[in-house]
Amino acid sequence: MPSDRDILVSVRNLSFSRGNRVIFDGVDMDFRRGKVTAIMGPSGTGKTTLLRLIGGQLRPTRGTAHVDGVNVHALSLSELYELRKRMGMLFQSGALLTDLDVYENVAFPLREHTRLPESMIRILVLMKLEAVGLRGARDLMPSELSGGMARRAALARAIVLDPMMVMYDEPFTGQDPISMGVLVKLIRELNDALGLTSIVVSHDVHETAAIADYIYLISNGKVVGQGVPDELMKSSSPWVRQFMEGQPDGPVHFHFPAADYGRDLLGNGA
C-alpha cells in the first residue's frame, strides 16, 4: 500500500486476463488527489477494463487496486457499494436509465441512497444540472438528447452524491467539436471546482493532453509511457511519438501481420 497521502488511487502489479488473452500484465499506476490523470492507448487495449477493475466490477488475476487506502478487491459487497457511493463513473454511452427523464436520472442516486426531502433533492438536482448546462433540459427523456447532452446529463448524475473521484470512460468519442469542447471544459472545471480526482480514459490525444495533469500510455497490457503531456509530446520513444502524433505507420505497423504480398497474390500465400 502506498504511504503517500497524496495518492487517491494506486494500482500495483495489476494483471488481468480474459480466457487466454492477457489484457494487463503487471501494470503500476498512481492517481493523485485533485488531479486529472489520463489513461491513453489504442482501441482494444483494455482501458475501460482498467476502470472496471478500479471500480471493483472485475477482479484482477494478480495485483491490487487501492482506492483511498483500501484494497478494492478485498472488500465485501456491501463495503464495495459503500465505496462506490464516493466514486462517480461516466460511461461511454452515458448509461442513462431510459425509462426516466433527465431530472429523475440525476435524482436516482439521491432517491436510492438518501432520505432527503423532495425539496432538497430538487435543489441538489437543479444545481448539478446547472453545472453541466442542462437545467432547461430536465424534462427531456434520454432518447430526446444528443450524444453530448446525454453524457452531460450522466455527468450530472455521476457527481450528484459529491464523490471524491470521477472516472470517465471515453468521454470524447463520437462527439462533434462543440460538444467535445464543452466536455473538455466541464471535466477540467468540475475537477477543480469540486475538488475531485479525475481519471480519464481516452484515445483523443489533443483533447486529453489539453486537460490532463499526467498521462499514462498503455499498449499490449503494459505501461509504455508516462509523464506530463509536454514530456510525452517530446518523448524519444518511437511508439509514444507515433501515438501522440497520430502517424499511420511506425512501431505499430499499418499492415496487419500477413504473408508475403507477392506470394499471396500468386496464390501461394497460405
Binding site: 471500480g55 466490477q57 459503500e82 462506490r84 457511493k85 461511454q92 448509461a95 436509465l97 442516486p109 448524475r157
Partner: peptide
C-alpha cells in the same frame, strides 16, 4: 438495459 450499460451503471452507483 444490459447492452446499453444501464445495469452496469447502476452497479457503479452502488445500486444492485
Amino acid at each position: 438495459m444490459k447492452a446499453t450499460e444501464q445495469l452496469s451503471g447502476m452497479e457503479m452507483m452502488a445500486v444492485d
